[in-house]
Design a protein around this nucleic acid. Structure first.
Length: 684
DNA sequence: CGAACTTTAAACAAAA
DNA sequence: ATTTTGTTTAAAGTTC
């Protein structure tokens, strides 16, 4: 009652008085509220959380490289030893052809042609098609690689032999040198392989990785090829005390095949850390059955990962087999445990490892790029800069990290991006919207609004839910989101609270603080209107008001903005504006199943639709909506708020006007709303 | 530098 | 009498 406009006038007053200065504050320690009450504050600045420490074992690029080399050396050494002990052939061909002479038969032809990005491919092709395509290419590439590997291997063999001899004749040092040379060669080879693969990978063939890797895995038991090595690759992924959230991860993995690069990026890196294995004695009987994989993937009894299209997919094989039985037989005879198989297996292993490493590097680069472009404040891992966060600092968006201090769920990691070794805690989604924005504007501009809360939230919804990370949205936008998510677009204060705690792990702490903030925001912003209800009071959103606040953020004049709004392709809109619009409304991010790759695409259009709705009311009319406005849901939503500015008073009297959907909104056709419709409520 | 926004903290008042 | 819900002020931080 009587709320009137008082607030406005009052508001302006203080600002004048206080002046602005006093920035020097920094307060914290001193300033404090003096003797002030601070009763509830109790814990005081409990929220600081300043812990910049991340528990994620990250590796610097340098480390990574080092690591990688170590790996290679190890393998090489092992290889060497094995060969040395196993073979004693006299072949003394002094095939001096040093490795350096090796030419990579990389089929450039294959990669350069269509440099389609995975995304593009996805857009053009349907998932099934895509998969088929990928498989084809994989096979092709594999063939090539295999041929190449064969040659390499022969060379290596020769070299080994010579080395052996040399070793017998010369002192250890010499041998050491040779070994070194050999290792280098190996390394080189690896590099080449890696490059080749990488290129392919860039074309969207990443999927190859999982598949390939899983292939040998499953054969191992049968072929009995030093199985322990490979499984480790995969085992490691969940190794460090990962709870039971594997399900998610597996999902992610499985999806990689067809999913977006984003997904694959997310999934793959987590496989890389395990590298710490030592190559094993070959023929190791103890089999760490990779059951997890095979079972989860569930190869139907009638299929075999190494068998497809009627032929054996063993590297370099291609033998045709009529049926599985025959194939198995073939597998056991041709690819039994022998040096060759073992070597191939190792090579494959290395390939995978290299890929993983490369992947990690690439994703790190991506992160850096994104960080640079301000898609997300997160610094991948700039030095260990403690990210000092000023006690009182608000920087909602800025400090997306901070979580480390308290893990509500242990190692919650964003399910989607799960544990990329290189990426610290931080929401995975880079809102697709922000991606295509690319526009110049945007810079750090609207940190708050930069990412359309809708998609951002939807994409990282799981993440925020579990990670104790402060969401990069303002209270106002969150509140609005909460309200808009409900069928009738209204919530009681308490329900809002609940939404906050339900959706964000972060808000399960410091309740006194943020609740106060929520309340404060509700009353402060004109865009939140309180509606008396029989049950009490509920809060609704006045979209128009909410929208109104925006303009100031924009560089241009408000009017200009409005014009822009009314008719332009989104493409033309500058990023921040776009973001604002997108943020303006969004539904359905609550459906938990939205995290899959598909969601991204489905979200986008949605936000655009949203764009239409909130915008349109500005001009004048309020009925017709832009053609693109497909979902009717919003239109009414808007209508409800249509005249609230003044209508507010009308509503206030409350009782008479059915509070819930006073006007038109009767048939909110939102999808998920069935839940709360109980008629009892509205009328009562 | 200043305006516009946010976030925190806290004092109060009215309702429940 | 307490707790909730709402309003307001104040102060400090950010961004542009």
């Amino acid at each position: 009652m009587m709320v009137e406009s008082a607030s406005e006038t009052i508001r302006s007053a203080p600002s004048g008085q206080n002046g602005v200065g006093s920035l020097s504050g920094q307060a914290d320690g001193g300033g404090g509220g003096g003797a002030g009450a601070a009763g509830t504050a109790g814990g005081g600045a409990g929220r600081d959380a300043a812990t910049g420490s991340d528990s994620n074992g990250e590796m610097s690029p340098a480390e990574l490289l080092h690591f990688q080399q170590q790996q290679a050396l190890q393998v090489a050494r092992q290889f060497l030893l094995q060969q040395a002990s196993g073979l004693s052939s006299p072949g003394n061909n002094d095939s001096k052809q040093s490795a350096s002479a090796v030419q990579v038969p990389v089929s450039v032809a294959m990669m350069s042609p269509q440099m389609l990005t995975p995304q593009q491919m996805q857009q053009i092709l349907s998932p099934p098609q895509l998969q088929a395509l990928l498989q084809q290419q994989q096979a092709l590439m594999l063939q090539q690689l295999q041929e190449y590997y064969k040659k390499q291997q022969e060379q290596l063999h020769l070299q080994l032999l010579t080395q052996q001899q040399a070793g017998k004749q010369q002192p250890k040092e010499a041998l050491g040198n040779k070994q070194l040379a050999f290792q280098q060669q190996l390394l080189q080879m690896q590099q080449l392989q890696q490059q080749h693969l990488l290129n392919l990978q860039r074309q969207g063939l990443v999927s190859l990785q999982p598949n390939q890797a899983s292939g040998p895995l499953q054969t191992l038991p049968q072929a009995a090829v030093c199985p322990s090595d490979l499984p480790q690759l995969w085992k490691g992924e969940g190794a460090p005390g990962q709870p039971a959230e594997d399900s998610v991860k597996q999902e992610g993995l499985d999806l990689t095949g067809t999913a977006t690069t984003a997904t694959s990026f997310a999934a793959a890196p987590k496989v890389s850390p395990p590298l710490s294995h030592h190559t094993l004695p070959n023929g190791q009987p103890t089999v760490l059955t990779p059951r997890r994989d095979s079972s989860s993937h569930e190869e139907t009894p009638g299929s075999h990962p190494l068998y497809g299209h009627g032929e054996c997919k063993w590297p370099g094989c291609e033998t045709l087999c009529e049926d599985l039985g025959q194939f198995i037989k073939h597998l056991n005879t041709e690819h039994a445990l022998d040096d060759r198989s073992t070597a191939q297996c190792r090579v494959q292993m290395q390939v995978v490892q290299q890929l993983e490493i490369q992947l990690a590097k690439e994703s790190e680069r991506l992160q850096a790029m994104m960080a640079h472009l301000h898609m997300r404040p997160s610094e991948p891992k700039p030095f260990s800069q403690p990210l000092n966060r000023v006690p009182g600092s608000s920087s909602f968006s800025k400090v997306t990290v901070s979580a480390a201090d308290s893990f509500p769920d242990g190692l919650v990691h964003p399910p989607t991006s799960a544990a990329a070794p290189v990426t610290p805690l931080r929401p995975p989604g880079l809102s697709s919207a922000s991606l295509h924005s690319g526009g110049p504007t945007r810079r750090r501009s609207s940190d708050k609004f930069c990412s359309p809360i809708s998609s951002e939230l939807a994409q990282n919804h799981e993440f925020y839910k579990n990670a104790d990370v402060r969401p990069p949205f303002t209270y106002a936008s969150l509140i609005r989101q909460a309200i808009l998510e409900t069928p009738d677009r209204q919530l009681t204060l308490n329900e809002i609270y609940n939404w906050f705690t339900r959706m964000f792990a972060y808000f399960r702490r410091n309740t006194a603080t943020w609740k106060n903030a929520v309340r404060h925001n509700l009353s402060l912003h004109k865009c939140f209107v309180r509606v008396e209800n029989v049950k009490g009071a509920v809060w609704t959103v006045d979209e128009r008001e909410y929208q109104k606040r925006r303009p100031p953020k924009m560089t241009g004049s408000p009017t200009l903005v409005k014009n822009m709004i009314s008719g332009l392709s989104y493409g033309a809109l500058n990023a921040s504006y776009q973001a604002a619009l997108a943020e303006s409304s969004f539904p359905l991010l609550n459906s938990p199943g939205m995290l899959n790759p598909g969601s991204a695409s489905s979200l986008l259009p949605l936000s655009h639709d949203d764009v239409g709705a909130p915008v349109e009311p500005l001009p004048s009319n309020g009925s017709s909506s832009p053609p693109r406005l497909s979902p009717p849901q919003y239109s009414h939503q808007v209508q409800v708020k249509e005249e609230p500015a003044e209508a507010e008073e009308d509503r206030r009297p409350g009782p008479p006007l059915g509070p819930p959907n006073p006007s038109t909104s009767g048939p909110p056709e939102d999808r998920d709303l069935e839940e709360e419709l109980p008629p009892g409520e509205e009328l009562s």
